[in-house]
Design a protein around this nucleic acid. Structure first.
Lengths: 228, 228
DNA sequence: GCAAAAGTGTTGGGCCTACACCCATGC
DNA sequence: GCATGGGTGTAGGCCCAACACTTTTGC
């Protein structure tokens, strides 16, 4: 056990689908410690790369995914969190849109990377369960004051997808009519003249699109998104 | 230049007084690099201490202060942020109440530690100006949705101190009557039967006290503090 | 025709905003 | 008595919460 302190980055990446709900990206560890245990994607940072670069590299290496939304979450540095040596990890919080999300689902169970439902997580390596808790709390808090929910949906989505997403993230069930009025009132969502593909019965759903640049203009004016 | 990556902690500690406004705690560096330049209190973490322990130790060593409110802010890890070698720093965000704050003011200019008005900061070492910006933004945002402003006041305070504090932190000037109604409506502030010492003319001000345990009970019920 | 999902308006009440004068003290 | 800072109430409007039926499709 050297006297060095090592630094890693780890990412908590959430995905979403209407059927499966909130899912989390995990990888199976190839090496000791915690060999064959599921863990967050991540790894040690290199001498000449920034933290942001490190986490992007690790995600690409271990899962092949590119993440549309990624921000620093918290740094975990408990002395005993890694049995080998002292490791401090900078955790990131990521969201992935449903198109990319589906691709990974297609890539079989044999893959090293896999999605798990947030309520059915396996036993995890290190203190990763603790990190995930912090990240999930951030997700549930942040969807209420920033329009990050759209990062979990596709570019075009039926309004009911957004509804369901917020329903699964917020504590109390949302009122469909009030929710739509509120969200539409910001003018950051465009109604398209396209319809979602039918799957089963029911009236076909119009598709909507999140307009990020309008949101950014509102922010500058001091108008902030808020839902609860 | 070794191949090691080193880890430090730094603290952005804010103090407040009605006369001087928002102030920031800085220390003068004794050693190279940036010798004699003002910088955030902080230093390298030790092999066997947690991050929280490290920042508390450094603050005590360098400034003698004990901080009532301290939370992790953000981790800064740009490759070139330290000219010596690669150093990643975990920044903390702290608030200190006005009693403690005054004590330091009494400890002369010769001291290594000194308060600076947030609008009159000297040139700083490393990327500490950037860290301070992030911290100040956090302060201004967070006072709006958590009652952390009280951490900057004394245990007992005249209501006008709170008013002035929010006035100096928020962008638009607050309405005195509406502000008081809002804050009092949470029931987290007790009106005492004591009065502030007179300094100059004016009606004597009643003293108030923040009741943290009532606030925590409200939080559990899902009632959140909010001012703007 | 019935099951499944999408779409849509109104009302009452509570909360937030706007706004200005009196009170107690020092000098 | 005047300057200084502390303390206080109301009315109008806006926004939010509560609430249920109709439309379009697949089968």
């Amino acid at each position: 056990m050297s006297d060095e302190i090592r630094i890693s980055v780890d990412a908590v990446v959430f995905g979403y689908s209407k059927i499966r709900g909130i899912n989390l990206l995990l990888i199976k560890r190839k090496y000791s410690p915690f060999k064959d245990r599921w863990a967050l994607p991540g790894g040690f940072i290199k001498q000449n790369e920034n933290l942001d670069q490190a986490i992007e590299r690790e995600l690409k290496e271990e899962t092949g995914l590119s993440i549309n939304y990624l921000e620093q979450l918290y740094t975990f540095g408990e002395v005993e969190r890694d049995p080998r040596t002292r490791v401090i990890t900078v955790a990131y919080f990521g969201l992935i849109n449903s198109e990319t999300y589906k691709e990974l689902y297609a890539s079989t169970d044999a893959s090293e990377a896999q999605w798990f439902n947030i309520n059915e997580l396996p036993e995890l390596a290190f203190d990763h369960d603790k990190i995930i808790k912090v990240a999930f709390k951030r997700l549930r808090t942040k969807v209420q004051y920033e329009p990050i929910g759209f990062e979990l949906l596709g570019k075009k989505f039926p309004f009911s997808d957004l509804e369901e997403l917020y329903n699964s993230l917020l504590e109390s069930p949302i009122d469909r009519r009030n929710f739509k009025k509120k969200v539409m009132s910001y003018g950051i969502i465009e109604e398209l003249n396209e319809f979602a593909e039918q799957k089963g019965a029911g009236r076909p759903a119009k598709l909507f699109k999140f307009n990020k640049s309008i949101y950014e203009q509102l922010q500058k004016k001091g108008i902030y998104f808020e839902v609860n």
